[in-house]
């Protein structure tokens, strides 16, 4: 897919670094460390991984909210990596974002109608009357009473605020929306409402989503493809069923092994039959990532060669790819309490 073909968004070799001080010395935190991805029109790509793995920074770089250190971002056939100011503005119309925090992402001093219409005003679209009509249609579409336009955000529950955020994202008819943990803060019954709404809107409007989430069950429900990130890099990507049912990378296996079973008859915690892929401790610092495979310091099947770049690329099926030297290795069985309490 080097040419990008029919891709709506194509990212190549993306690097984002942040300057940090470690014990008084200036260092670079490699938040995103050479990342490739592409998203087709109307497609949902989920980006998963733990906090600090760089998934939100990746999205912010794509939205041009942080400056990439290196790499190329091509959106709707046009390289946008270096666009600024007036030339970036038409691109911004086409890509929108829905944030995690329904309380922090809406200006409390603006009425809901102003919040939803703000993009239309900035881009000088329509008359005041036309904008008001569009806001009413959008509010109705996301399941809110159009009369909500006159009220302030504080009058709404978390789920309703997230609907307002979605209406705001839709106002400029984008082709691409970043959903950055957009349902993570919601209660499960409300989360299901919002996930269904996002799916309906995608079917109606053909928008693509970059869906950032830490909940793999949610990801399995909404995504077509999934990319697993670890320490600023994608370690595995592919169709969601393939990755979840036949994971290749030990880190993907660790994430799946950590999910509570949702069935008390098949407990994994405290049962003594701990899944050997389950991972201990925390990821290493992105200031000092390990050489070679970033996961090798925690990987149960790592060998000395894993410290040497390059890491082999394995393709299990078309589009299902992982970067791992030992995708077929099996770890030794683990014992129940190896990292629990030592009482």
């Amino acid at each position: 897919m080097s040419g990008g073909g029919g891709a709506l968004l194509e990212v190549r070799g993306l690097e984002v670094r942040f300057p940090v001080r470690v014990r008084g010395r200036r260092r670079a935190l490699r938040a995103v460390d050479g990342l490739d991805l592409e998203i087709g029109p109307g497609e949902t790509l989920a980006l998963v991984g733990e906090s600090g793995c760089g998934k939100s920074t990746t999205a912010r770089a794509i939205l041009r909210l942080v400056e990439p250190h290196a790499g190329r971002i091509v959106f709707e056939g046009r390289e946008i990596t270096a666009l600024r100011g007036r030339r970036l503005k038409p691109v911004r119309r086409r890509m929108q974002v829905v944030f995690q925090d329904p309380y922090g992402s809406l200006d409390p001093r603006m009425r809901v109608g102003q919040i939803v219409a703000e993009g239309l005003v900035i881009h000088r679209i329509g008359t005041r009357r036309e904008r008001a009509q569009k806001v009413a249609r959008l509010l109705e579409r996301v399941g809110l009473d159009p009369r909500c336009a006159d009220r302030y955000p504080h009058a709404f529950s978390g789920g309703q605020r997230q609907r307002i955020g979605i209406a705001r994202a839709l106002a400029l008819d984008p082709s691409f929306i970043v959903c950055d943990e957009a349902v993570s803060a919601l209660d499960v019954s409300i989360q299901a409402q919002v996930l269904n709404l996002l799916a309906e809107l995608q079917r109606e409007r053909g928008m693509a989503y970059l869906f950032i989430a830490h909940d793999l069950a949610v990801v399995r429900h909404v995504a077509h493809r999934v990319a697993v990130m670890y320490l600023g890099r994608i370690v595995e990507r592919g169709p969601v069923d393939a990755v979840f049912e036949r994971p290749l990378h030990p880190y993907t296996r660790a994430l799946l092994a950590a999910i509570p079973s949702a069935d008390p008859a098949r407990r994994t915690i405290g049962s003594g039959a701990r899944n050997p892929w389950r991972v201990a401790g925390d990821p290493p610092s992105p200031v000092d990532p390990p050489s070679g495979c970033p996961y090798r310091t925690r990987c149960p099947v790592a060998v000395a060669a894993c410290a040497e770049p390059p890491i082999p690329r394995v393709e299990a099926a078309p589009g299902h790819v992982a970067w791992c030297r030992r995708p077929d290795a099996e770890p030794a069985p683990a014992h129940g309490d190896s990292q629990g309490a030592h009482l």
């Binding site: 092994a257 950590a258 915690i269 309490d337 990292q339």
Partner: peptide
């Protein structure tokens, strides 16, 4: 995070 959650539940 889910991997850490599993550790704390253990």
């Amino acid at each position: 995070d889910v991997t850490v959650q599993a550790q704390v539940l253990e």
